[in-house]
Simulated scan of single mutants.
Amino acid sequence: MNADIMLADRRRTVVESGSGALEVIVPDADAAVRWASHEYPNSLAKWHHHPQIEFHLIREGSGLMMAGDCVVPFRAGHVALIGSNLPRNWVSDVKPGERLARRDVLCHVRPQTMKALMACFPETARFNLVLRRAARAMVLSGESAQAAGALLEGMGDHDPARRVADLIELFGVFADAPETEASTVVTPGYDLELNSDTERTVNEAIAYVTENLAGEISLEEAARLVSMSPSAFSRFFKRAAGIGFSDFVRRLRIGRAKRMLATTDRAVARIREECGYDNASNFNRRFLDETGTTPSAYRKAHRKAGRKPSDNADR
């Protein structure tokens, strides 16, 4: 494992207090810019928040990004900037026992550090808009995402001084991204009171869903696991995660089906079962609602786009 990664992970901990569960990231004594890479699943990959702003690149896999009150799909190449203390999580679609060794890359810096930079160098004043937009989770696409992703990857091979230059260039990419390649996804005015019980409950519910995606999942069982009534849990999850519990389950299941249709030769019926749907008509209806097309048409379109299957139907 990269020495930088091991050192960084040893300096991460979670403090639970009356004011909330907070991921404490202790920076290097001689560095204001922190870079790390993680595999998945990972104990650090959960719904959490911290004071640092976070540049985040997904290198492999697909799933759902949760930030504030929004849930958006991601796949390899996804780049996002998450503001200070905005709760976030990236839930990857993995099979039981599967690990993504190079799932993501991230860069942390305190907003105060950037404000000090802007005070000393007026040339960087435009970065202030990036900081404000980060409070609503900024997502890049197209050439802007490619440029930001390359910078985040390159940081891992650079010394601390070079990473400062990378960070400034990274902010420049976000500042210069055209409207067609940059968007914010959190509702304006979003404000969730974070506390240890909120974060623990959300993470327990997410763990229950991801561990049982191919089997039976019920609102009642999720509520029982977190010691809440079904109605109270339903309201809580929608407010905290920004999406209804059943909608969250559906989007994860259909996301898995899309990946398997595009990358494997498995029969549609088998894929349906592995995504937790016993009934073909229900699966087809949910898939159509989520994607606007049928499973067979989706597979055909992705085969035309040149994607090759990764395994056979009889595996």
Rank of each mutant, 00 (worst) to 15 (best):
R12A: 06
V14P: 00
G20R: 02
D30S: 08
A31R: 13
A32K: 13
A32N: 13
R34A: 12
S43P: 04
S43K: 13
H49I: 02
R59T: 10
L64M: 15
L64H: 07
M65W: 05
M65N: 15
A67G: 11
G68M: 03
D69L: 05
P73N: 05
I82H: 00
S84C: 04
S84K: 00
N85G: 01
N85W: 03
V91Q: 09
S92L: 04
V94S: 08
E98S: 09
V105F: 07
Q112A: 15
M114W: 03
C120S: 12
A125F: 00
R132P: 10
A134Q: 10
M138I: 08
E143K: 11
A145H: 06
L151D: 00
L151G: 02
A165R: 09
E169G: 02
G172K: 06
G172F: 00
D191I: 03
D197R: 14
T198E: 15
T198N: 11
V202K: 05
A205R: 00
A214P: 07
S218C: 00
E220G: 06
A222R: 00
A223F: 08
V226N: 10
S227C: 07
F245Y: 12
S246C: 14
V249H: 11
V249I: 15
V249M: 11
V249D: 15
L252F: 00
I254Q: 11
M260F: 07
M260N: 07
R266Q: 12
A267H: 12
A269E: 13
I271K: 09
N284C: 01
T294K: 08
Y298A: 01
K300R: 12
K300L: 04
